[in-house]
């Protein structure tokens, strides 16, 4: 008697899971299929579900519409800011995890608060400063500004990670006469690699996705891919296939990274508030 009821409720549950999955995934399905449509097919009304796919949109956006260089800009900016955040953030995280000093709580709090500051607050003053110093439309301006969110993430996640490494290791090395820097470099950092990897992936994702700083600070030469996608919307004849091809090119790398770090994505988005 119990078995059929169990079975039926499992079917209902499976159906519900399927619906949830479809709800999440369908827009991506539509994005990819639209990117494979010619403009004529994309403008059929009602929309068609079966058609002969073409890669023409990808060819055109990559090599004619300069999405290719924009993607390269995005990669340069995201990789450099991530590397810089890890280089600056891991020693700071180590200090927060290991050393006792006055004002530690305040410093900690200040690092997190950056998560709450809207980029629109910083964008215009930085725009003026960048214009004055000749840094406008350079990768450097974006790399530096992205530290406002990548650095706190690295510090948050790596502090947690360093805390989980037993202090006895440090103490043993110290009795051997190793310096703090050497303990950090040769003992703790290698053991903290999982945290470093996760925070790097998250930094990369957030930098890759950023639009506002990119849109205001890098209008031409250093234009990143999301800012490029926005310009397609200007004008009357909206090229659906090309927009979706660009979107696909932007989204696929982050989705791969997100799936790789799926267990830690929530922790990163909540700044460690939820494990």
């Amino acid at each position: 008697m119990a078995a059929p009821v169990q079975r039926r409720s499992q079917w209902g549950e499976a159906l519900l899971l399927l619906l949830i999955g479809l709800f999440c995934v369908f827009p991506f399905y539509w994005m990819v299929t639209t990117s494979l449509k010619t403009q004529v097919v994309a403008l059929e009304s009602p929309p068609v579900w079966w058609f002969t796919p073409t890669l023409a949109n990808y060819w055109e956006v990559l090599f004619v519409d300069k999405v290719g260089p924009a993607l390269i800009n995005s990669i340069i900016v995201a990789v450099c800011t991530t590397a810089l955040a890890v280089g600056l953030g891991t020693p700071a995280a180590y200090a927060l995890a290991r050393f006792e000093f006055r004002g530690k709580q305040d410093l900690w709090f200040w690092f997190i608060t950056n998560r709450f500051v809207s980029p629109v607050v910083l964008a215009f003053p930085v725009f003026l400063i960048a214009r004055g110093t000749g840094l406008r439309d350079t990768h450097i301006a974006l790399i530096l500004m992205y530290l406002t969110f990548t650095l706190p993430i690295v510090i948050w996640i790596c502090t947690d990670q360093f805390r989980s490494i037993p202090r006895e290791l440090d103490e043993a090395a110290m009795l051997e006469g190793a310096s703090q820097w050497r303990i950090f470099r040769s003992i703790c950092l290698p053991l903290a690699m999982p945290g470093v990897a996760v925070s790097s992936i998250l930094s990369f994702i957030f930098s890759w996705n950023e639009l506002l700083f990119a849109y205001i600070l890098a209008p031409k030469a250093a234009k990143t891919a999301p800012a490029m996608a926005v310009t397609f919307m200007e004008g009357y004849d909206v090229p659906y296939g090309k927009i979706m091809a660009t979107s696909t090119l932007i989204v696929v790398p982050v989705l791969i990274f997100a799936l790789l770090a799926s267990k830690h994505l929530v922790r990163g988005l909540t700044m460690g508030a939820v494990k």
Binding site: A229, I243, F257
Partner: peptide
Amino acid sequence: SLVLPMATTYAVVGLLAQV
């Protein structure tokens, strides 16, 4: 599949919505 929407570039979500 739940991981995908929240990692999607926010600008792309707007474009997808338009289309």
